[in-house]
Amino acid sequence: MTTPTQTSADELGTPYGGLTPTATADLNRDGFVHLSGVLSPETIARYEPTITSEVIRLNTQHLPLAERDTYGKAFLQVSNLWRENERVKELVFSPRLAAIAARLLGVHAVRLYHDQALYKEPSGGITPWHADQYYWPLSSDRTITLWLPLQETGSDLGPLAFARGSHHFSSGRDLPISDESERVIEQAVAEQDFEDVVEPFALGDASFHHGWTFHHAGPNRGAVPRRVMTVIYMDADIRVTEPTNAHQVNDRAWMPGTGIGQVPDTPLNPVLFDGRSS
């Protein structure tokens, strides 16, 4: 008899059958995709308690919500949990998830940039409009982020929302997550008539978004934390470039020892899927 643990672990290593033939084109057109049934509820149930306990253990934000700035109210953020816990590593290193990322990007292989747990507390504030790629000193936009809620996520919990097609729009790319990015990008989204796509996530759903796609999230009006695990993937052949802002200088720490112009082939950035060897 197969145990639930074996079933969950096996699912992480088996292909996802939900991608349509147009999935890559859909990502290129819209800047994001929302996929159903990426993981089963049983698999989520195996990993959520461990991720949550690690977030509680490693969280360094202890100010009351009322005393934090906009960024601090948006979520509790803990990165590279895979280095702290072997069970979390199983999820982050999942061939199933990495293969989806490679297929959507249209590349033969992807490597890990880093993971992030993003927990929006009850009464937590908005996540301001922004684009992730602003933070990354990388040579191309062949990057993609998995956003995996660890509970059913209705509009009350603040699901991630996307400006459809905004990855083709360059204005606002020079802004970090802030009150300014919220104001400037919200105005640009309205002026450019980008659709603000806000959808609930069923348990097991996940989204993948392009590095330059503008996105945001509403506040958590629910009574429980909005628990989310993210994994950032990059083209396995991508290279490190000269940083263009202070955040990119800091982000070079995710790729230790990698020089400008080099592929970040480090122990922290393993190749998680390579279609040429599968």
Rank of each mutant, 00 (worst) to 15 (best):
T143Y: 10
L81Q: 04
S207W: 08
I260E: 14
Y135C: 10
R183D: 08
E48Y: 04
A246M: 09
Q262S: 14
D193H: 14
G106M: 00
T127K: 09
R142W: 05
Y119Q: 03
M255P: 07
Y16I: 04
A25T: 11
D179C: 00
R68L: 15
R183Q: 13
Y71T: 06
R96C: 08
S8E: 07
R173P: 02
F273Y: 15
A25H: 05
V240A: 05
R87P: 00
E42G: 15
Y47W: 07
I56N: 09
T20M: 08
T50V: 15
D235H: 05
H114L: 12
H216S: 14
V88N: 02
A98F: 06
H168A: 13
Q77S: 13
T244V: 06
D69A: 04
H130K: 12
S171Q: 15
V224G: 00
D174S: 11
L12Y: 09
R57A: 12
W147S: 07
T52W: 14
R46H: 12
D179S: 14
A161G: 10
L203T: 01
D156L: 10
H215Y: 07
V271T: 14
D156G: 01
P149M: 01
Q61N: 14
L157Y: 06
L58A: 10
T143P: 00
G158Y: 06
H62D: 14
G37R: 14
A163H: 06
R221C: 09
L150W: 00
S155A: 14
A253G: 11
S139R: 10
A206I: 07
E242I: 14
W82D: 11
G18V: 06
V38E: 12
A253P: 01
D69F: 04
S181F: 05
N80S: 15
L138D: 04
E186N: 13
R252G: 08
T50D: 05
F32C: 10
S170E: 15
R276V: 06
W254H: 14
P219L: 08
P41E: 08
I144K: 05
V271H: 05
R87G: 02
L157C: 03
E191Y: 03
N220V: 02
G211L: 09
T127W: 04
R46N: 00
L39Q: 03
N80W: 05
E48H: 07
S40R: 12
T213W: 00
N59V: 09
H34R: 13
E67V: 07
L160P: 01
L157A: 05
G222T: 02
L81K: 05
R276P: 01
P15K: 11
V224A: 09
E42T: 09
L272R: 11
T241S: 13
A131R: 15
D265Q: 11
V107N: 07
L157M: 13
V249S: 10
Q248I: 09
R83P: 00
V189A: 07
P243L: 03
A23N: 08
T244M: 10
A206R: 04
P21L: 02
Y16L: 12
T5C: 09
A236E: 01
D251R: 12
S178D: 05
G275I: 03
D132Q: 05
L150E: 03
